[in-house]
């Protein structure tokens, strides 16, 4: 039985030019969805169906994109939660953080709380789905991976470590169908009170020297940061030297 996979997409923002684009993590979520479900993948966007960026997603080989039609100020969560409840999805894929708006990354968590599904954060890959369980690879810092199994249905937020999205084809993107449905009209009332401004550069932290005496201050200003060198093994045999290195590697837990 093929599983029903839904990818949630949003409008991204190019980091340098600031132009709208297909969001990096969302497009990876679509790529993973295409791997799992092929063209049966349901791609859902809450917003305007006139948005040209949706064509970039559709150009990845999607026959149609579901759009929950709503204003920019409306709360996308409500309409997406309603849609997911009405569809019987097995896997919902999102990005970790949107590239526009608040980009809090809370969408998958609130959805999981509302639907009562587990959420797996920072997924690098979904290896296989066996029965009602999926083997999921999580992306950890320093390129490490952790494997977990999770029961269907679940929500996964896709990390940048997932497979990169395929190129978008312009023509097929234009020909794709935009399936518009009515979205929510609930306003995000909390957000109205916020003030937004272009990001200021954050001040760099200065190295503060709390020296008591002039000699200490002088030392702090002139001394090289490196301390004395460590242990030097000169006359030992190769075995002893290798053993010392090996002990250090074990102590640092780089060899398990």
């Amino acid at each position: 039985m093929p599983h029903k996979v839904i990818s949630l997409i949003s409008v991204g923002r190019h980091p340098q030019s600031g132009r709208s684009r297909r969001a990096d993590q969302d497009s990876r979520a679509v790529e993973l969805g295409l791997k799992l479900a092929g063209t049966d993948l349901d791609v859902v966007h809450a917003g305007s169906s006139q948005e040209p960026v949706l064509r970039q997603y559709a150009g990845m080989g999607l026959p149609k994109v579901t759009v929950l039609e709503q204003d920019e100020s409306a709360d996308a969560l409500v309409s997406i939660a309603d849609y997911l409840k009405s569809e019987k999805a097995d896997i919902v894929l999102t990005g970790v953080r949107a590239e526009s708006g608040e980009s809090s990354g809370m969408t998958p968590y609130i959805l999981s709380e509302q639907l009562g599904w587990p959420i797996v954060a920072r997924v690098a890959d979904i290896v296989e789905i066996k029965g009602d369980e999926a083997q999921v690879l999580l992306a950890l810092p320093r390129g490490q991976r952790r494997q977990v199994t999770v029961k269907l249905p679940f929500i996964a937020s896709i990390d940048n470590a997932a497979e990169a999205a395929r190129q978008s084809a312009f023509g097929p993107g234009l020909r794709a169908k935009m399936d518009s449905q009515n979205g929510s009209t609930v306003e995000d009332s909390v957000r109205v009170d916020w003030s937004e401004a272009p990001a200021k550069a954050r001040p760099k932290r200065l190295k503060i020297v709390k020296a008591k005496t002039a000699a200490d201050r002088f030392k702090a200003a002139t001394a090289k940061p490196q301390g004395g060198s460590g242990k030097v093994m000169k006359n030992e045999s190769a075995q002893e030297q290798a053993q010392a290195i090996f002990d250090l590697l074990i102590e640092e837990k780089v060899i398990r």
């Binding site: 980091p15 600031g18 272009p198």
Partner: peptide, 13 residues
């Protein structure tokens, strides 16, 4: 706080 992939400063309570 930062928003919109760190291009926005959001001031709030």
């Amino acid at each position: 706080s930062r928003g919109a992939s760190a291009s926005l400063d959001i001031t709030r309570k």
